[in-house]
């Protein structure tokens, strides 16, 4: 849970491998772009193929949303090693910003993206500044406390959040309202979101900030000794991560059109879930969090649709079992498992 254990858990092989490879060949953003475009195109193709299969299209849509959220989380949680479970707070800020601007001032959600990002980043910087003094489990549990405070706050600030009954947005389809009748449009929207988060994450990983974040994660004392401004690095990472999460909130608001504090700020359904998705996929890697989302989210929804009605809780029993077994058989996450397979395969060649 601390910087150290993250580094030593080995779940991060990818970025460090890249670093090692850097000795012979410097990896730049340009090197990453072909893979990036291939992944986005592949998903785009999947969206196209599924565009008339609404149930499965929706699974993919949700996977892309949570993929984007997990990739955003990964910037501070994976690269920076700061295990936040409070990202639901920034998600909620995005949703409430867009919802209120649209509902009360008629501002298009497309325009609301900017204030949502700024607000999420600002709140993230303000609350993180004190909390970043804490390390390891202290930091994680403090972010849990932040979620609790945020829920109480959202319940009480009825003018903005609608209190317990939630904030609702009328259904008025139109591109300018970001409300679509065509289901593939939402899939495309969330694919766009995912692409933005992936690209940001690629740029950061190959920038000074990315190397700083990883240095802080791997050994903050050594990082400090080599002149890296630790607090500034963490704050920057957190602010970018939160701003991206806020965008996800904007899109989510326009997708469900009703949000209420208990669901939006749910510790397990949002805050912990985002982190777990990144974790099972491959924390600290670029595509690991996406991989986690593409596996975990459809699995969750599929089990709920086809097993949820037989016995109360039946779907979650199966999901729980899969999570336990998954962690036992893929100790380094899915990305790690795939890498192992790839290595074994290339040795054979």
């Amino acid at each position: 849970m601390s910087n150290l254990d993250l580094a030593q858990s080995g779940a991060l092989g990818d970025s460090r491998l890249a670093g090692r490879r850097g000795a012979a060949e410097v990896w730049t953003v340009a090197n990453e772009l072909p893979t990036f475009f291939a992944v986005v195109a592949a998903i785009g193709l999947a969206v196209y193929l599924l565009s008339n299969q609404f149930f499965y299209l929706n699974l993919l849509t949700m996977a892309l949303l949570f993929g984007g959220l997990a990739v955003s989380w990964n910037i501070i949680g994976g690269f920076g090693g700061q295990f936040s479970i409070a990202h639901s707070v920034f998600f909620a800020i995005g949703a409430y910003t867009a919802g209120n601007l649209y509902k009360h001032f008629g501002v298009s959600p497309w325009i609301a993206i900017l204030p949502a990002m700024l607000l999420s980043a600002a709140v993230a910087a303000i609350v993180s500044w004190p909390v970043f003094r804490l390390r390891g489990p202290f930091f994680a549990i403090a972010t849990m406390a932040l979620t609790e405070v945020a829920i109480a706050f959202a319940m009480h600030w009825k003018a903005v959040t609608g209190g317990a009954s939630g904030l609702t947005i009328p259904y008025r389809a139109g591109l300018e309202n970001m409300i679509f009748q065509q289901r593939w449009a939402y899939a495309a929207l969330f694919l766009g979101y995912l692409a933005v988060t992936l690209l940001t994450s690629i740029v950061i990983l190959r920038s000074r900030l990315g190397y700083y974040l990883q240095a802080v994660r791997d050994n903050d004392k050594a990082a400090e000794a080599s002149g890296i401004p630790i607090m500034w690095t963490k704050l920057k990472g957190m602010a970018i991560s939160a701003a991206l999460t806020g965008i996800g909130g904007v899109f989510f608001m326009m997708y469900v059109r009703i949000v209420e504090p208990a669901g939006l700020l749910s510790l397990f359904d949002v805050g912990v879930k985002i982190a777990l998705i990144a974790l099972i996929g491959g924390i600290g890697t670029i595509y690991g969090p996406l991989l986690g989302a593409l596996i975990l989210v459809p699995l969750d929804y599929w089990l709920r649709a086809f097993m949820g009605s037989a016995v109360p809780g039946g779907n979650l029993i199966v999901l729980g079992l899969i999570l336990v077994l998954g962690s036992l058989f893929m100790k380094k996450g899915v990305a790690g498992a795939l890498r192992q397979v790839y290595r074994a395969w290339s040795r054979q060649q």
Partner: peptide, 22 residues
């Protein structure tokens, strides 16, 4: 009667998708 399961808004949308298309 065909049961669909949802505990929040996003699952509700998925449940409608499943009931209507599957």
């Amino acid at each position: 009667i065909i049961r669909g399961d949802a505990t929040n808004a996003q699952e509700a949308i998925a449940a409608v998708d499943k009931l209507a298309t599957v």
